[in-house]
């Protein structure tokens, strides 16, 4: 047996010169990156054809560490930017990394509208229930009663159920897992990448630095144990009462349906109506040898 430490093949996908990351010890973002690479390989996609778009927040820093085209945009807008990327070059696989603050608060409108259009994007939302980058303010997915620097006596508002919200808005693939479920999570991201339409993968993740510290879960391990013990897969949840489901994280695929995809419909319509063959001209702009 060789004593050489095993180096993950995934390291080749990372911009090594940018490592170490800015993520805190115990952050769930590492798991998300790992499961993404796993899913990408399972889906037989290549970074050569992937464009990553992100907004502002800890999870939005993920694309910066990955060796592919990426667009780091403004707070809340990655899906709007990604809409432009996808329609500018519909052959590209466009992946959005976002967080609960980015996608559900300031960018909530873009989220539901991209879902409504069923535009072919894969949105990976790392939901840690808090604004981590700015130092631990309450977010629209923070559980009722949870503590943050802006809610010293606990949050009053009900949180968004993002998977349900996006399902209702018209997404064609919606799944929710946590960072303690890396295999089903990889599988969900794979299905999201393969789905021709709007895919939303909600990853319940731990922020030990802010959410954990303010909510009496002092370590990443403690938070991950909590996620493990408080998760219920959808199939089992169906058999449980509302009282039993109180405080539980429901996991699984919420939606997996085959609806017409926006960029395809748009290209077809343009091709049908235009006598100049516009779409091919647009697409060919990217195909010239540089």
């Amino acid at each position: 047996m060789s004593n050489k430490p095993k180096v993950s093949g995934f390291m080749n996908y990372l911009r090594k010169e940018r490592i170490p990351t800015i993520f805190c010890a115990g952050c769930g973002n590492g798991t998300v990156i790992n499961t993404f690479f796993n899913a990408m390989e399972m889906a037989e996609l290549s970074l050569d054809n992937i464009s990553m778009v992100s907004g502002i927040g800890c999870s939005s820093r993920i694309p910066g560490y990955i060796k592919c085209d990426s667009l780091h945009t403004t707070h809340g807008r990655p899906i709007a930017f990604a809409t432009g990327v996808k329609l500018g070059n519909p052959d590209m696989d466009v992946v959005v990394f976002t967080g609960d603050g980015d996608a559900a608060a300031i960018g909530g409108n873009h989220l539901i509208h991209a879902a409504r259009r069923n535009l072919d994007l894969t949105v990976i939302c790392v939901n840690n229930s808090i604004y981590g980058m700015t130092g631990g303010q309450i977010s629209p997915t923070s559980p009722k009663g949870s503590f943050a620097s802006t809610t010293p006596y606990g949050a009053l508002e009900a949180p968004f159920d993002l998977a349900k919200l996006v399902s209702g808005a018209g997404a064609t693939y919606v799944s929710r897992w946590t960072t303690v479920h890396p295999l089903p999570l990889s599988n969900a991201i794979k299905k999201g990448l393969q789905n021709k339409g709007f895919s939303f993968i909600e990853v319940i993740s731990q922020c030990p630095t802010y959410f954990g510290r303010k909510n009496r879960m002092r370590s990443a391990v403690e938070m991950m144990k909590y996620m493990k013990t408080h998760s219920v897969v959808k199939k089992k949840a169906k058999k449980m009462s509302e009282e039993e489901l109180e405080g539980k994280i429901i996991l699984g695929d919420f939606v997996n349906r085959n609806w017409p995809e926006f960029s395809e419909m748009l290209c077809e319509q343009v091709n049908e109506k235009s006598e100049k063959g516009l779409i091919d001209a647009i697409k060919s702009a990217y195909k010239t040898d540089l």
Binding site: I106, M133, G135, Q137
Partner: peptide
């Protein structure tokens, strides 16, 4: 709404 470097005013 939080934003660096204003956030601590809000906090």
């Amino acid at each position: 709404y939080p934003i660096t470097p204003q956030t601590s005013i809000s906090e």
